[in-house]
């Protein structure tokens, strides 16, 4: 994926390889969420090009809805549909976008919920689930569409500390299964354990990037050093 000359983002040029887990860190307002949201055009880049799986999604006639279902996205505040059960949340796009019959959609939803450890929650409404369970259901909702890439926008920031682990475990399992992932998060321990590359952004530009061990231990730029020092305290 490459971008050029955005307002919030400037001169960004980044490639994510298949099965790579790229971690994006940076202070708030650095443009990391905007970068993520450009990847499925929830945010419209003013200029530049974004290519996902060989397809230029910024092209004029691009079929956005077809592209988006191959790009899973997980949000900070989960954004589960409160009027639908966990199963209903997963099934909606299967039914309405992929046109799956109800029984098949439910079978896929069950499998997706099993994968995130929510086998017995398919008929529960979001308000009957803990934060961690809600976020895992949201991951299942994205996974059920068999995306080529998963985008995580601060997936654990809204969670109580004791619930973070469950969500990270699911993400680690995804990584092991070969999913391509771009994660905006400050979970440093997870980044060190699972990320292939860490990208540090500030002021709408990529300041520095590298393997997690290098970037955290020996940041080259002062801004990176300051930031890493702050969040590791």
């Amino acid at each position: 994926m490459s971008y050029e000359k955005l307002k919030v983002l400037r001169g960004i040029n980044i490639d994510v390889r298949p099965s790579e887990l790229v971690f994006i860190i940076g202070p708030s307002g650095s443009g990391k969420s905007t970068l993520l949201r450009c990847c499925n055009r929830l945010e419209e880049p003013d200029s530049g090009e974004i290519i996902v799986d060989g397809e230029a999604i910024t092209a004029k006639g691009a079929n956005l809805n077809a592209i988006r279902r191959r790009i899973g996205m997980v949000f900070q505040s989960f954004n589960l549909y409160p009027h639908l059960t966990a199963g209903g949340n997963v099934m909606l796009a299967l039914r309405k976008v992929l046109g799956k019959p109800k029984a098949e959609a439910r079978a896929i939803a069950e499998a997706a919920l099993v994968r995130v450890g929510l086998a017995d929650k398919i008929d529960n409404y979001p308000n009957q689930l803990s934060g961690g369970q809600q976020q895992r259901a949201a991951i299942a909702r994205a996974l059920a569409l068999e995306p080529k890439i998963m985008l995580f926008d601060e997936p654990t920031s809204a969670l109580d500390p004791e619930l973070v682990g469950d969500v990270l475990n699911v993400m680690a399992e995804l990584k092991r299964s070969g999913m391509t992932m771009v994660v905006v998060s400050h979970e440093m321990r997870f980044a060190k354990a699972a990320a292939d590359r860490v990208v540090f952004m500030d002021g709408g530009v990529i300041v520095e990037q590298g393997a997690p061990a290098d970037l955290f231990a020996n940041p080259k730029q002062k801004r990176t050093r300051d930031f890493v020092g702050q969040i590791e305290q």
Partner: peptide, 29 residues
């Protein structure tokens, strides 16, 4: 909230499907 639209559109639902299946059921309630 806008998050509902984000979630719905990110799974490939169109704007009108999002209105019909995600926004309106909650709005009417």
């Amino acid at each position: 909230g806008a998050g509902q639209t984000d979630a719905s559109r990110s799974t490939g639902l169109s704007a009108s499907q999002t209105m019909a299946y995600v926004i309106l059921p909650q709005a009417v309630r």
